[in-house]
């Protein structure tokens, strides 16, 4: 089966800044793929390379097996949901959604029907005559999605689409996006800096840092078996500790130890509590074991020692993961 998107040694440099640096990547047909990384890590530039807003400095990009370098955005059957939605302010919702069909010369009646149908799909039926300015953030988000889907694109690109929404709405949209993607069977490529979002939504995640991909894998792979210190730290703020302290691997290696895998245990090691934060479901403890700082998440119903006191902690060595690569 042909992959939806293939990057081979793709670089995009802006002067001396290597926004994307020799990236190899294969996004499978029909998968929900997340690009995760901090700002400036190159994930958005990768998305823009797929959309055609940027051209690679080096390397080759294929979309469903066809060469995409030098092809302008309007000749790519790929559509984007923009970060701030980029809805046309001088058009109503229906005209926004129908835009893609209008430029293709589809008749007015036909594109009207299709636009209404697509609005139904995103549960905005009957909103056609409103102006973008009259909609809430969540509704604009849906209009942007409908506008991208009406063209029946081979790949849908989503640039931090949920970033501007409040927490509750974001969780609801995450679920809906996932459902929609499954129902339509389309390839979704999703850019986010929110690791929760990436892990919970995507089939596979690529973690970006400084223009390079650090690791590609399933959500569980990325979380349980981070291959670099960066991934361990960025995804789920893991403790990166010397392997012998974690009880795995050999001296000189580093291991990732998840904060939630550390538990209070009277028979465990002594650690000094240097910070204590109540988070509702859990209490976050900052600990110090012989100069090595550790973070532990303790279920909130357990009694925790106060700052300055000694906590006794242990963990299951099998939960610690030795990192193969030093980065």
């Amino acid at each position: 089966m042909t992959d939806a998107v293939t990057f081979r040694g793709v670089s995009r440099h802006f002067g001396s800044v290597k926004a994307v640096d020799e990236v190899d990547l294969a996004i499978h047909d029909g998968e929900f793929f997340a690009m995760l990384g901090p700002s400036g890590s190159g994930k958005t530039t990768c998305l823009r390379l797929i959309a055609g807003f940027e051209q690679p400095t080096a390397g080759s990009i294929e979309i469903f097996g066809e060469r995409a370098e030098g092809v302008p955005p309007y000749l790519r059957n790929v559509n984007t949901v923009f970060q701030n939605y980029a809805l046309f302010p001088h058009m109503n919702v229906l005209d926004n959604v129908a835009f893609g069909l209008r430029v293709k010369g589809v008749s007015k009646a036909e594109r009207r029907r299709a636009a209404e149908e697509t609005l139904e799909l995103v549960e905005l039926g009957g909103y056609g005559t409103r102006r973008a300015g009259e909609l809430s953030g969540g509704q604009r988000q849906r209009v942007a999605l409908a506008r991208a889907l009406i063209n029946k694109p081979r790949v849908v690109l989503l640039d931090e689409p949920l970033g501007a929404l409040d927490l509750k709405l974001r969780e609801q949209m995450q679920e809906e996006l996932r459902k929609l993607q499954r129902a339509l069977g389309l390839t979704f490529v999703f850019v986010t800096h929110d690791q929760d979002e990436a892990l919970s939504m995507a089939d596979r995640v690529a973690v970006f840092a400084e223009g390079k991909i650090q690791q590609i894998g399933s959500a569980e792979d990325i979380y349980r078996r981070p291959s670099t210190r960066f991934v361990a730290d960025f995804v789920g703020s893991s403790n990166v500790v010397p392997a012998d302290l974690a009880g795995v691997g050999q001296t000189g290696q580093w291991a990732s130890l998840r904060p939630e895998d550390i538990r209070l245990d009277a028979a465990g090691r002594a650690a000094t509590v240097t910070g204590k934060f109540f988070h509702g479901r859990v209490t976050k403890l900052s600990l110090d074991i012989k100069g090595q700082s550790l973070t532990a998440l303790i279920p909130a119903h357990e009694a925790t020692p106060d700052i300055g006191e000694t906590a006794y902690v242990s963990w299951d060595a099998s939960r610690a993961h030795v990192m193969e690569l030093e980065a």
């Binding site: 959309a51 055609g52 807003f53 302008p72 955005p73 309007y74 790929v78 559509n79 984007t80 923009f82 970060q83 701030n84 980029a86 809805l87 046309f88 302010p89 001088h90 835009f99 893609g100 209008r102 430029v103 293709k104 506008r147 991208a148 063209n151």
Partner: peptide, 24 residues
């Protein structure tokens, strides 16, 4: 982003000008 959106949705530069840039 509005011009990028137009181009992304399949508008040629001339269409982007006529349907998005000029009206705005």
């Amino acid at each position: 982003a509005l011009l990028e959106a137009a181009s992304d949705l399949g508008a040629t530069p001339r269409q982007s000008f006529r349907m998005v840039l000029f009206p705005l």
